[in-house]
C-alpha cells in the first residue's frame, strides 16, 4: 500500500503551500511564487485554482471568510499543511544530499580529464 502522506508534492503545490504563511489571495499566490522562484515558476490560473480546491478538501489549507468589502477569497496554511511541507523538506534534503554526494563529483572528474 502506498503511503499517500509521504508521496512527493508537485512543485506547484509545494510553492503554493510555502507562499501561505500569511493570509493571501489567489493572485497574490501567483505573484509570490513567481518572485520566490526568481521568475522560473509561473503558476497558471487553472492549475492554481484546482490545487487550492484540492488543498482545502485535504484540509492542508483554510479558506478564510472574506472581508466585507472584498470578494477576494484568502487562504492560509494550517498545521496539517505545515506538517506536509516538513515531510517534503526532509525528502528534498535527502535527494539533495544523495544527489550531491554522487553528481557533485562528476564535475571534478571532468576537470581532472
Amino acid at each position: 500500500m502506498i503511503n499517500l502522506e509521504t508521496m512527493p508534492l508537485t512543485e506547484a503545490v509545494f510553492y503554493i503551500l510555502i507562499s501561505m504563511d500569511q493570509p493571501i489571495h489567489g493572485y497574490g499566490i501567483m505573484q509570490s511564487v513567481e518572485r520566490m522562484s526568481g521568475g522560473r515558476v509561473k503558476l497558471a490560473a487553472g492549475t492554481l485554482y484546482g490545487a487550492l480546491n484540492t488543498l482545502v478538501e485535504k484540509k492542508w489549507i483554510t479558506a478564510l471568510p472574506s472581508a466585507e468589502n472584498s470578494r477576494k477569497k484568502e487562504y492560509q496554511i494550517n498545521d496539517s499543511g505545515k506538517a506536509a511541507v516538513a515531510t517534503e523538506l526532509a525528502r528534498l534534503r535527502e535527494l539533495l544530499e544523495n544527489g550531491e554526494k554522487v553528481a557533485g563529483g562528476w564535475n571534478d572528474d571532468e576537470k581532472g580529464l
Partner: peptide, 13 residues
C-alpha cells in the same frame, strides 16, 4: 497565456 502550468492539471483537463 496558459490556464495550466503543469502536466498534472493539463492531464486532468
Amino acid at each position: 497565456f496558459e490556464l495550466f502550468s503543469d502536466t498534472t492539471s493539463q492531464l486532468h483537463h
